[in-house]
């Protein structure tokens, strides 16, 4: 069943450029990039129970690293991708050391503070990053010498990485390691008493999450061809957290749905008004208060209810009391 779904997704993504206009392909690419970003945050928020408000730091580190490598070294995708991922990996290694020392709200504060530090560095360091003007003049990415000037090529690169990562993260969260992370979310004290060194597990989850966040940043550089400091700002960290929460934290498909909803909504709203943040704030508050389990959670609940009405539930086995005793 899983393989079938995966195969259908591969076919749909493969065929999409033949049916969709380039505007829609570009929209789809943006959704997939932000879905990777949201999936990476979901490892922390949804599976480990650590709410980070600074995930844009990794996105920005990956994006700026890829852009700078593209400008100064080579525009070859393999180079920029590896370089961007490596930079965000190193950043996650360092930031993780500090953030892992604290829990709960202090974790949230520290991640927010670190990401603002990265932001202010990018904003102030005009010689490298272009400061408030953003990083411009990033060359078109190329793969083995072939220039990926068409959005369709960027889409294919993104879609392949998305499918690989989606499958990889699905396997990861179901692995024994992933189960320990869920255990940390549910009851860390208990896991500690069972002999797990939960700090190491949280640290690894943080590093994986940050590295993949950087990967999505690299893809965003290919897609956008331009990086602004707002891509590292707290609003970006907030937006990706909103995607995870309204889609459904702790599920695989949830963050993807959340990313799709937010990107589509932003594209539609932007034609009418520039009060996008106001609306985003209202949506955020609405979901936090009324639908904390997210879109996918609501869908799961309602289908379960619906199925309960349709399919006769298996009756519980009656236990013969005398036999048991």
């Amino acid at each position: 069943m899983t393989y079938l779904k995966f195969g259908i997704a591969v076919l749909l993504f493969g065929a999409a450029p033949f049916f969709l206009a380039s505007f829609h392909i570009s929209l789809l690419t943006e959704i997939l990039i932000l879905a990777i970003f949201a999936l990476s945050l979901n490892i922390l928020v949804g599976y480990t129970g650590l709410v980070s408000l600074g995930h844009a730091a990794f996105f920005g580190a990956g994006a700026y690293a890829a852009g700078l490598i593209g400008q100064h070294v080579s525009a070859e995708i393999i180079t920029t991708l590896l370089g961007g991922v490596l930079v965000s990996f190193m950043l996650a290694l360092v930031v993780g050391i500090f953030c892992m020392k604290v829990n709960g709200f202090y974790f949230l504060m520290l991640t927010l503070a670190f990401s603002q530090m990265i932001y202010s560095f990018i904003y102030q360091s005009t010689t490298w990053t272009g400061g408030s003007n953003g990083l411009t003049g990033i060359p078109t990415p190329s793969l083995l010498g072939l220039e990926l000037s068409n959005i369709v090529w960027v889409f294919y690169v993104t879609a392949i990485l998305f499918l690989l990562l989606y499958a990889g993260i699905s396997i990861f969260v179901k692995s024994p390691f992933g189960r320990v992370l869920v255990g940390i979310k549910e009851n860390e004290t208990r896991l500690k008493s069972m002999g797990y060194n939960t700090k190491i597990y949280r640290y690894v989850a943080f590093v994986i999450s940050g590295t993949l966040g950087g990967l999505s940043g690299v893809l965003f550089t290919y897609f956008n061809g331009f990086i602004a400091p707002t891509n590292v700002y707290w609003t970006m960290s907030g937006t990706v957290l909103i995607m995870v929460l309204i889609g459904g934290a702790g599920t695989m498909i949830g963050p993807v749905l959340g990313a799709a909803l937010i990107v589509i909504l932003e594209t539609v709203i932007a034609t009418y008004t520039d009060m996008w943040m106001l609306l985003l704030g209202v949506i955020f508050i609405f979901f936090v208060i009324f639908l904390p389990e997210g879109i996918y959670g609501v869908w799961q609940r309602s289908t379960r209810k619906w199925l309960k009405g349709k399919i006769p539930q298996p009756e519980l086995k009656k236990v013969d009391r005398e036999k048991v005793s």
């Binding site: 709200f105 907030g238 996008w276 106001l278 704030g281 208060i289």
Partner: peptide, 23 residues
């Protein structure tokens, strides 16, 4: 709802006030 939801709520509020001030 618990403190975490309330913190997220104030975060949503920061978005709203940010845009209102700009408006």
């Amino acid at each position: 709802l618990g403190h975490l939801s309330q913190v997220l709520l104030t975060f949503g509020l920061a978005y709203i006030l940010h845009d209102l001030a700009k408006l």
